[in-house]
């Protein structure tokens, strides 16, 4: 049962996407506003299911919760600049050090928990997905390019400023525009360009200022978490 859940969910998401592109079935007739939300929820469930299946110790759970709370508290505006906040940066560093699953958990929990205090909205699930994916991708970056240096990570953080905005825009474009052509796409996406640029610049500057030292702190802490039994 456990083994088939992942492929079933993946097939379901691909099936919904494929059926949505063709215009002549009931999946497509419900409209992309609903369809994109369904796919997003399926993806979130899949990630959470993955986290539930993994072996997580009490120390890891407590650490993820603390990092999520710090990332969430980073959303409280402290500089008089919109969209410049350390949340994305903290999520990326957490994912890079502790792996994709922990990265997802930190990102999505930060989004959900901060909105318990700031106010939930249609943005919440998309923020959970976007920040979750930022953590996952940073974890994957570490797996495939373990030697990614400071410059690469600054570029990666910068890119996530835009990717985050683009993920948030998907639903805005899909639910409220018709026909879904590249003109409406460009117009909807260019509306957020300035804020996305600020976000990206903020991420890069945060990484440049703090990235390497934070990675060192978290690595040191990671060593404390693991217990090795010497035979």
């Amino acid at each position: 049962m456990r083994k088939i859940i992942f492929p079933v969910f993946l097939l379901l998401i691909i099936g919904l996407l494929a059926a949505g592109i063709r215009q002549d079935n009931f999946v497509a007739r419900q409209g992309w506003g609903l369809l994109s939300a369904e796919i997003m929820f399926l993806a979130l469930i899949l990630f959470y299911w993955g986290f539930e299946q993994g072996k997580t110790s009490s120390r890891e759970i407590a650490l993820i919760a603390v990092l999520s709370a710090i990332a969430a508290a980073g959303r409280i505006p402290f500089a008089a600049l919109p969209n410049v906040q350390p949340t994305t940066f903290i999520v990326i560093v957490s994912g890079f050090v502790f792996g994709p699953q922990a990265g997802f958990a930190v990102g999505s929990t930060a989004a959900l928990v901060s909105n318990f205090f700031l106010g939930q909205g249609p943005w919440t699930p998309w923020q959970m997905l976007a920040w979750g994916l930022a953590g996952v991708s940073a974890g994957l970056l570490k797996i495939f390019f373990p030697g990614a240096g400071r410059k690469w990570m600054i570029g990666f953080s910068f890119l996530w400023g835009y990717l985050y905005g683009w993920i948030m825009n998907i639903w805005f474009w899909a639910a409220f525009f018709q026909p879904l052509n590249w003109q409406t796409f460009l117009a909807a996406y260019s509306a957020s360009f300035f804020l996305d640029t600020l976000h990206a610049a903020g991420n890069a500057l945060f990484y440049a200022a703090l990235g390497n030292s934070l990675i060192r702190i978290l690595r040191r802490f990671q060593r404390k978490l693991t217990v090795e039994i010497i035979p």
């Binding site: 299911w49 539930e52 997580t56 759970i61 919760a65 999520s68 929990t109 928990v113 901060s114 318990f116």
Partner: peptide, 15 residues
């Protein structure tokens, strides 16, 4: 989802 909700509850307490 026992673990995920525990993380969320802990983080909500610590926020």
């Amino acid at each position: 989802a026992g673990k995920s909700t525990l993380v969320i509850a802990l983080a909500a307490r610590m926020f």
